[in-house]
Design a protein around this nucleic acid. Structure first.
Length: 685
DNA sequence: TGGTCGCCAATTTTT
DNA sequence: TTGGCGACCA
């Protein structure tokens, strides 16, 4: 290179540069949507590296693994040292927690073979307990398992008691608080005794390690710089972890926007951002409000939707670097089918004007709101991919594999045993429970106990079952991750083939999964990684999509956070759908819906199209769907309507689209210093 | 009679 | 895919 290369930070504005060049005192960056938040965070990491900071002493916490990887890779590339990316620390809170717990498991009183339970597994564990003796006495039935898991999680993540959380967020559970408390106690004890950590436990143990007198400083001392993205979405447990990582706020950078806090249902509290800004005397607050993404016409609408700033936080008014642009549109459609047709029509119009399909997205509040749109896209042969909603890993056979792999390391994992046992013919939930009594930790269950287990099983299961334990022992003695994964697959193959109607398709899926697992260094950490960050689709396992593929993205607004498209189509703007009726009960819920609306609007760069069906099918028992007139979305108020070009769809009927009718594990051993911090008993009151 | 298996309906948002 | 409800088997 003979002339001076352009500096990599050229094009950053003054506010962004202030954040990038900031020293070690605590820094809060309040960044409106589209103001180059990711770019700023990336540049700050690059600047630190350029200054010679050891990459291993920089930690970046984000809400998705992909976000962390992308940012770190970019930062290292910016300064021309791509090889440094691998040495930077980064990931989700949960992933980093897993790593820390592996490193400090002895001190935390955990065997290194602990397993990670996803929320569905946690529900299974809860199910194992809910009708145990002692709990069965209550006259009323306990709430649904999923509700219980949510309630539990909310208590742990927000440091509140069951009674408090039930009163506020789950009023229908209040009469049973006493039984629920009992259940939660048993749930914790059961997990502890079997070496199982659910998502919440990962954070609890992370916090415990930080609070420990000796380990805490050691752990906090690992990193000189901690950068946290999307801080408005942390809950109080995560906020405590951040505080523990950066005593006095030294080296701490957080980036966030209180108007984009949309994870209240997960215990996040948008007030954390303003609380943090107030909690350090030497804090610097940098405000980013120059929007580099959208045209001003889109931002005019977004500014109307944006809620007032939280206490102590600056009011933000987004200003576009790109003037003018097209006025957003609002289509009042006859019903959801006519909405679907309107969306497809406009997507094709943009496509004919030269916009790639991949530059357009259809955003929905709830995954099923796109059902009719997807039908219409399929009918018109418009390729699309859907994000959010059902996860690929929820496919039963993949969970079967993960369960098998977990048992290789942790034979006391009863949830995994349940799953594996139920694959055997003639074994249902209750038989599996009986067999569980004969398995670890109740019994050692080495090879010598196995004939007893087989004998206790119903006859149809015996043949298959007699191969299962030897299969697991094979897997345990295998040397490499690859060999282990293959041994697990070998033991699953006949079970999966016989148990599922589409057995062979599932088996070829598993082949792909096992190939991926085989490339890891250590099967246990691969399994926990996939538990914490499940692939969104089958294609994820095959690598990134090919560049020449062109498809429209269909996504929930939540999954669309942080992303952008040239054209955004936002559908189902109707009270009950968006805002969701589940949220309309409380004022806080409605406020969160409004923030979600703001997030949706600000994904659009050039074109923003809103659609509002005027009638929705009203589901009745007995089958026939009646269309009832619905209330327009309260987001479409006078002010908003003043900013959009409205179209009334002609009331074509329901003709063209056919819609169908219509504790500690036994192996612990060493010094459990952090026990007090792991004690959740105070919450079970 | 208890438990498994088959059929039908429904599901906010996600680490 | 799970959950609820009814049918059928030991």
């Amino acid at each position: 290179m003979f002339c001076s290369m352009a500096a990599w930070d050229e094009g950053l504005d003054d506010a962004q540069l202030a954040a990038v060049d900031h020293g070690t005192s605590p820094l809060v960056v309040v960044a409106g949507a589209g103001t180059g938040k990711t770019r700023t965070l990336t540049a700050r990491v690059a600047r630190l590296l350029e200054r010679g900071v050891d990459p291993e002493r920089i930690l970046l916490l984000t809400f998705t693994r992909r976000a962390a990887e992308d940012m770190l890779a970019r930062a290292a590339t910016l300064i021309g040292r791509p090889e440094l990316a691998r040495r930077l620390w980064g990931g989700t809170f949960h992933r980093v927690a897993y790593q820390v717990i592996r490193d400090f498991c002895e001190v935390l009183g955990l065997a290194p073979t602990f397993s990670v339970l996803d929320p569905a597994d946690a529900g299974d564990a809860m199910d194992l307990l809910r009708d145990d003796a002692g709990l069965a006495g209550s006259a009323e039935r306990l709430p649904r398992t999923a509700t219980l898991v949510d309630l539990y999680s909310r208590c742990v993540n927000t440091n509140r008691t069951v009674a408090e959380v039930a009163a506020l967020d789950f009023p229908w559970c209040q009469p049973q608080v006493a039984e629920i408390v009992k259940l939660f106690r048993a749930f914790v004890a059961r997990k502890r005794s079997r070496g199982q950590l659910d998502y919440d436990d990962l954070l609890v143990y992370f916090r415990a390690a930080l609070l420990d007198e000796t380990v805490g400083p050691q752990l906090a001392g690992r990193w000189d710089y901690v950068l946290v993205d999307e801080y408005q979405d942390v809950n109080s447990l995560q906020a405590e972890i951040v505080a523990g990582l950066c005593p006095g706020g030294r080296g701490l950078t957080v980036v966030g926007d209180d108007a984009q806090a949309v994870y209240g249902f997960r215990g996040a509290d948008p007030a954390q951002l303003s609380r943090l800004a107030a909690s350090y005397p030497d804090v610097t607050v940098v405000v980013l409000e120059h929007n580099f993404r959208s045209v001003q016409r889109v931002l005019d609408l977004a500014n109307l939707a944006r809620p007032a700033a939280g206490p102590g936080l600056p009011a933000i008014r987004l200003r576009a670097q790109r003037g003018g642009g097209a006025r957003p549109t609002l289509d009042r459609c006859y019903d959801a089918s006519s909405e679907a047709r309107a969306v497809a029509r406009r997507i094709l119009e943009h496509h004919e004007e030269g916009m790639r399909l991949a530059d357009q997205a259809i955003l929905v509040r709830a995954a099923h709101h796109s059902d009719l749109v997807e039908l219409e896209l399929t009918a018109r042969r418009i390729p699309y991919r859907k994000y959010g909603g059902l996860r690929y890993v929820d496919a039963a056979h993949l969970k079967d594999f993960v369960a098998g792999a977990r048992l290789v390391d942790n034979p006391t994992d009863d949830v995994a045993w349940m799953r594996l046992l139920r694959l055997h013919p003639g074994v249902g939930p209750s038989r599996a429970r009986q067999l569980l009594e004969l398995l670890p930790p109740r019994r050692p269950s080495g090879a010598e106990d196995w004939p007893e287990v087989v004998a206790a099983a119903p006859p149809p299961a015996r043949a298959a079952l007699s191969a299962t334990l030897p299969g697991l022992l094979d897997a345990r003695s295998a040397a490499s991750a690859k060999a282990k994964a293959e041994a697990v697959l070998a033991l699953l193959r006949p079970l999966v083939a016989a148990h599922y109607a589409s057995g062979s398709a599932r088996l070829s899926d598993l082949d792909r999964l096992v190939a991926a697992a085989g490339t890891s260094e250590d099967l246990a950490s691969w399994v926990s990684a996939i538990t914490l960050d499940p692939p969104v689709s089958c294609a994820d396992l095959a690598g990134r999509p090919r560049l020449d593929e062109d498809y429209v993205v269909v996504s929930t607004v939540h999954a669309a956070k942080g992303l952008e498209w040239r054209a955004v189509h936002l559908v189902h703007l109707v009270d009950g759908a968006f805002p969701a009726d589940m949220a309309l009960r409380s004022g806080e819920g409605l406020a969160e819906e409004r923030r979600l609306f703001y997030v949706a609007l600000t994904r659009a760069r050039d074109e923003l199209h809103l659609y509002s069906p005027q009638r929705l099918p009203h589901h009745r028992r007995g089958g026939d769907d009646r269309h009832t007139l619905v209330q327009a979305s309260r987001f479409l108020d006078e002010a908003v309507l003043g900013q959009v070009a409205s179209h009334d769809e002609p009331s074509v009927g329901r003709d063209s689209l056919s819609v169908g009718s219509t504790g500690r594990p036994a192996t612990g051993g060493s010094r459990p210093v952090a026990e007090a911090a792991l004690d959740l008993d105070a919450l079970w009151r």
